[in-house]
Design a protein around this nucleic acid. Structure first.
Length: 610
DNA sequence: TATGGCTGCCC
DNA sequence: ATTCTGC
DNA sequence: GCAGAATGGGCAGCCATA
């Protein structure tokens, strides 16, 4: 298929918001797609060239794509970025420049030298390729080349490869091509829609989506599902099984604000009889899916990236403590202090996610891994077993005497008891609780009310909100482009220095209407340069006078290498983890915002056990 | 050799 | 991660 | 309620450049 034809389908989808209509368009595209290209088309519609878990990354984002566009159309990077900021979409920027740019016929020399290389890779014909006659497979091949490039000269080579492609495509195609390296197709299409469309294209309607979805959850590779469906039909897809050593999509949690809501929502079975729910502590580390195949152990992150080499102690613990030949465990790993036995904050744990210096890091930041589910044991997949059964099997599978620890769980029926457990978790300095339906299977890839997290700050009843002053705004992308603002730079008040210091950007918590309003209000007090009383190393798109106060909720205060709140020559600043706006404080003056001293106090307080 | 820009991926 | 919105 | 698209802080790694 020609890339330009592919782009026409994407163009139609971009203009469509109804999911049913999107499924129709996408399935029409799939119907036209031959077996040789179906997996590629599936990856490309998702702004990828490989499944999530493959260690293949295009390695180009905003800045280098902007450079490529500049090279292709004889502009410069700054101009492209400026246009991008105005339009909120790099694809649209490319489309505009390509439509009026001078450069289709004569790409700059730097790009031209690469074009011959591309042709050698992409197509056997050596004749001049007319504009827009490039196939999807050729584009895919070049993107793969870009991903494979490494070592000295990488940046230039990648930009040359991409600009080479851009120079050979029509404006609509460039718009959609450019969005692929950015991993953001903005089409309103996610995994579920692709599954519906695959089912519709090949099996007549979407009634068989569940079967495809199950196979996707077991294999985590949407391209593989499509290719198998095209080659071997539905029965081939159904034969795709869980493999030890290949990651399974993680089940995720929904959220509810308090214990009462959790009980109301979860403690009834399918016959509406009152039943207990399973409750576990929620640890603030990262998800590790552990696969043991006899002597071989592999590990994967929540997003299925390979993490095996990062945690030698988990490999050792798995081999020592797991009483089964083959097994897949779902765990949460976090660093702790062996002297005090206390768990360390996420900022410390995350230093274990590394490629080099593994042994040193392991010595400094030893891990514990809490196993909370078992998905496979001795040749049998357990996804369809109810949680209660899996928890029992987990008990029989792990020797609980080392780095690997079975997560303690208990059954609760009343909101009061659940609240007590939440208080208990908080007093231990943990993140909160995870509540699960005992009869639920492991719904890989699903985020639904079978698993619910109950966090410390969910209900906002704790007065951990902070009053911040808006220092400026950052222009938005996608639909936020039209609102004028997509994020806010906010700060707190440093009374000693009488200045406002940055503590976070805020990108959520406002309705569309509020974004429009705040943009209007901000523009009325915009200034050309950073105000004298503002101290920030982060530059927003537009500075404003520090006057508007907002109430901000966050889960945690962290030490920040970037923000200036509390920062000195020797000390890092403070920042907010998971910041969101809760309301406007039009009753407050800027100087009445939270003070840095108060931020410091809250920071110290949060690690003290209550 | 040190630093900083950029990117990808954790939460 | 959190939050909002169209369907 | 699902699905998707906006957006957050901050870490390590790669590459370019001073």
């Amino acid at each position: 298929m020609l890339f330009s034809e592919f782009a026409e389908y994407l163009e139609k989808m971009e203009a469509t918001s109804s999911r049913l209509a999107l499924i129709d368009i996408l399935s029409d595209l799939f119907k036209k797609t031959p077996t040789s290209e179906i997996d590629k088309i599936v990856y490309l519609t998702q702004g990828r060239i490989a499944p999530f878990y493959a260690p293949i990354e295009i390695g180009m984002a905003e800045k280098s794509v902007a450079s490529s566009i500049a090279i292709a159309y004889g502009s410069d990077k700054e101009k492209v970025i400026k246009l991008f900021n105005k339009l909120g979409d790099m694809g649209k920027a490319a489309e505009q420049l390509s439509a009026r740019g001078p450069a289709f016929s004569v790409p700059p020399a730097s790009a031209r030298s690469r074009l011959t290389e591309l042709r050698a890779v992409g197509s056997p014909s050596s004749s001049v390729t007319p504009r827009s006659s490039i196939s999807v497979s050729e584009v895919f091949e070049v993107l793969t080349q870009i991903a494979k490039t490494s070592g000295e000269g990488t940046v230039e080579k990648r930009q040359a490869l991409l600009s080479g492609l851009l120079g050979k495509l029509d404006p609509t195609s460039t718009k959609h091509l450019v969005r692929i390296p950015l991993g953001n197709t903005r089409l309103g299409i996610g995994d579920p829609t692709v599954l519906d469309a695959l089912a519709t294209a090949k099996l007549g309607d979407k009634s068989k989506r569940k079967a495809l979805e199950g196979a996707y959850n077991r294999t985590s590779d949407l391209g593989l599902i499509a290719k198998t469906l095209w080659e071997k039909g539905l029965s081939g897809v159904e034969r795709l099984e869980v493999r030890v050593g290949a990651p399974i999509r993680s089940e995720l949690c929904e959220r509810l604000p308090n214990a009462q809501k959790v009980i109301e929502k979860m403690s009834f079975d399918s016959a509406q009889d009152k039943v207990g729910v399973d409750v576990q502590y929620k640890y603030d580390g990262f998800r590790v899916q552990i696969h043991k195949d006899n002597d071989t152990v592999r590990m994967f992150s929540r997003n299925l990236e390979e993490m095996t080499h990062m945690f030698p102690e988990l490999i050792k613990a798995t081999l020592e403590q797991v009483k089964a030949d083959t097994v897949i465990l779902d765990t949460e790993a976090l660093a702790y202090n062996p002297q005090s036995e206390e768990f360390l904050p996420f900022q410390e744990t995350t230093k274990r996610r590394r490629k080099y210096g593994i042994e040193e890091a392991a010595a400094k930041l030893p891990l514990k891994a809490f196993a909370f589910d078992i998905l496979y044991k001795n040749g049998r997949q357990l996804l369809d077993e109810p949680l209660a059964k899996r928890m029992e099997m987990l008990k029989d599978t792990i020797r609980d005497d080392g780095v690997l620890i079975r997560t303690k769980n208990q059954t609760v029926t009343e909101a009061k008891a659940l609240q007590l457990l939440l208080d208990d978790a908080i007093s231990k300095g943990l993140e909160g609780l995870v509540v699960k339906r005992l009869e639920s299977p492991y719904e890989a890839g699903g985020r639904n009310f079978n698993w619910v997290k109950l966090k410390r700050h969910s209900d906002g009843e704790l007065s951990d909100t902070i009053d911040c002053v808006i220092l400026g705004y950052i222009t938005g992308r996608g639909k936020r482009a039209e609102f004028g603002a997509g994020a806010l730079l906010v700060g707190v008040y440093d009374k000693d220095k009488d200045e406002f210091v940055s503590i976070s950007r805020i990108g959520t918590g406002l309705t569309d209407e509020e974004w429009r309003e705040i943009h209007k209000r901000a523009d009325k007090i915009h200034v050309d340069h950073k105000p004298i009383r503002v101290n920030s190393t982060i530059e927003p798109s537009v500075w404003i006078e520090p006057k508007i106060v907002i109430e901000v909720l966050a889960d945690e205060i962290t030490r920040s290498p970037l923000h200036t709140a509390g920062k000195s020559e020797t000390e890092p600043g403070y920042a907010l983890r998971f910041p969101r706006l809760v309301k406007f404080r039009n009753d407050k003056k800027a100087e009445e915002a939270t003070e840095v001293s108060e931020i410091k106090r809250l920071y110290e307080l949060q690690y003290k056990k209550k």
